[in-house]
Design a protein around this nucleic acid. Structure first.
Lengths: 332, 332
DNA sequence: CTATAAGTGCAACATTTGTTTCTTCCGTGC
DNA sequence: GCACGGAAGAAACAAATGTTGCACTTATAG
């Protein structure tokens, strides 16, 4: 998202000493750099929840001649990015420096393949099976632990009833004690397959539970056991396997399950939000306006005229921004 | 470049039957698609060696309302290529099948972008910093837990000395007790940033430890604290954020670190293999790869956090007029 | 509490934008 | 030859853009 970019660096550096409105404008620019070049200043200001003049003032406070310089800069960034991108494709190899690029390119490809029809069909079938379950037990041992953990974490936020089979001292399987034929086991395992995972899967089958598997090959022992199987690649240019595709699959499953009942999922999320807010778990998020508030990609839009319909603004109270505390105002 | 681009196709198709000036304008647009969105029509016309009115006439000859539609189209193309966002809004209500594909395509794009030069440079710098550390403390709370877990898991297999700050009952930070200036904290946190993560990071800084951060924005509070920062996207078409890119970053870091001393890493892996073999942890692997090359560290973690769908922040009272949003009335 | 300065919103400003209209030019038909 | 029709340039247009000055609020210092 960011190129080595003198202007952006200056923005970040100056953020702390800025007036609230300027800061808000700056944050929006940092958060949506592309929009800067693609929409007019007034539209950008509107998305940022700021007066047009603030944008101009922001530019001047950075020592620039005007807003146009900010736009020019971001436009150039886009131009450079597409060029640099093309350049990168050419030099595909090299050793150490290339390794990271190689890994990421590899990952990108693998995940793209997951989007192919066959894979999608498996995803849908798996989601279907999971949705019918009374309860979902999630199992992932060793390297697959995090996929299982993630699935359980998200589903909990979404209000679904899942249980993570993750006990210490070999008690992982105890959770299956009360599981029955109306429940489903989501088992995640990649080669080399942990013995314990298979044992639990066989136990589940013996209990007539449903089984959905995320695994890495049709040769996987889970393949024979499961009602629905999703295959994901794990090859990597490194010594170790990659689990990012498996995670992508898990996320996709969560997405599919959540979309089956948008309302319920949203409600659960907001409830979780409130809960965590009450616990003071998080500190203030920087970007208060979600991406949804940005322009709005209708194909033919891009210019909502302010039809002068905008009424008079009532008096509003403004409070000082709390998170800028402790930094003395470096007035220029 | 390679999006199925209805408008460009129409341009190409109509090229032959066009008047010379129109054709010249069309050719210029086809040759410099990005410029269309980045400069004004008059400037574009000048570069094309054509009258401004010709551009308007070109648009109308294609059946469009005006030049603005051409620009909007190309701006959208940039947004698509750059963020992978756009389609999400349009088909927000698309079928389940669409959602999964959308998510995976989005992910693939995001990970591809992690391979761009700037991002790679950050990765290398971070790996460099981590390699110099006497000991690496890994911190990731809530949704980021699995990234931290993964990093620690793989590094352990590789024989590196890392410590996962992951205690129950709020003891997560205790591990830092004996950390000092020769050590480095690898902190992973995405918006909304967990308070505890920041507190621990500040503590680490107070102890003169090095800090490497994996986070989601230059606006992240970690950005100011860390010696090296790696940015990874988290946007997703769903209700929750994606952590697959963060996991990819973690994997890349592990890869870079391992490649600094291939021999040592390989030796450590084989040792781990023997160890686990002795414990009879795994069942016979199908013939996937030669055993030497197949240790098992999967490194994928994924955690999503709940993104509140509307981004109004509670501590700000001010709102700005909502009614002008998202209405694309073509004038006149 | 007052005095002062900084920060912010509002409205008018000069430009520039995309579009339209009018005029001129050139090739083709009867 | 002359009208005719389409294409292309030039100028005029309203609407928008980015900017600036002023009034008012809010925070800080005395």
């Amino acid at each position: 998202m960011s190129h080595q970019d003198a202007l952006r660096a200056r923005l970040v550096a100056a953020l702390d000493g800025m007036a609230p409105q300027l800061q808000q404008a700056a944050r929006h620019i940092l958060a949506h750099p592309d929009e800067v070049a693609l929409v007019s200043m007034r539209q950008l200001a509107r998305s940022a929840g700021v007066q047009p003049s603030t944008m101009t003032r922001l530019a001047k406070s950075l020592g620039l001649a005007g807003y146009e310089e900010i736009r020019a800069h971001h436009a150039q960034a886009i131009r450079l990015r597409v060029e640099g991108f093309a350049a990168q494709q050419e030099r595909a190899t090299a050793s150490d420096e290339g390794l990271a690029q190689q890994m990421l390119r590899n990952l990108s490809l693998q995940i793209t393949r997951l989007g192919e029809p066959d894979s999608i069909a498996r995803l849908k079938a798996a989601a279907e099976r999971l949705a019918r379950a009374r309860r979902i037990y999630v199992l992932g041992l060793r390297s697959c632990h995090l996929v299982a953990w993630h699935f359980h974490y998200v589903m909990t936020l979404l209000g679904e009833r899942t249980e993570h089979l993750d006990g210490p001292a070999g008690t992982a399987g105890d959770g299956l004690m009360h599981a029955g034929k109306d429940d489903v086991l989501l088992a995640i395992s990649i080669s080399p397959y942990a013995r314990h995972s298979l044992e639990l899967a066989r136990l589940a089958r013996a209990k007539a539970m449903g089984i959905v598997a995320i695994t890495d090959s049709e040769l996987s022992p889970l393949n024979a056991l499961a009602d629905a199987v999703i295959l994901c690649p794990t090859e990597s240019p490194t010594f170790f396997h990659t689990l990012a595709p498996a995670l992508a699959v898990s996320e996709a499953l969560c997405g599919l399950l959540a979309s089956r009942d948008r309302e319920a999922a949203l409600a659960a999320l907001q409830k979780a939000d409130h809960h965590l807010l009450g616990l003071n778990t998080y500190c203030a998020a920087p970007d208060r306006r979600p991406p949804a508030a940005t322009p709005d990609p209708g194909v033919s839009d891009r210019s909502d005229r302010a039809a002068s319909a905008d009424g008079k603004s009532p008096r509003r109270i403004r409070r000082h921004d709390p998170q800028t505390r402790g930094t003395p105002p470096a007035t220029k």
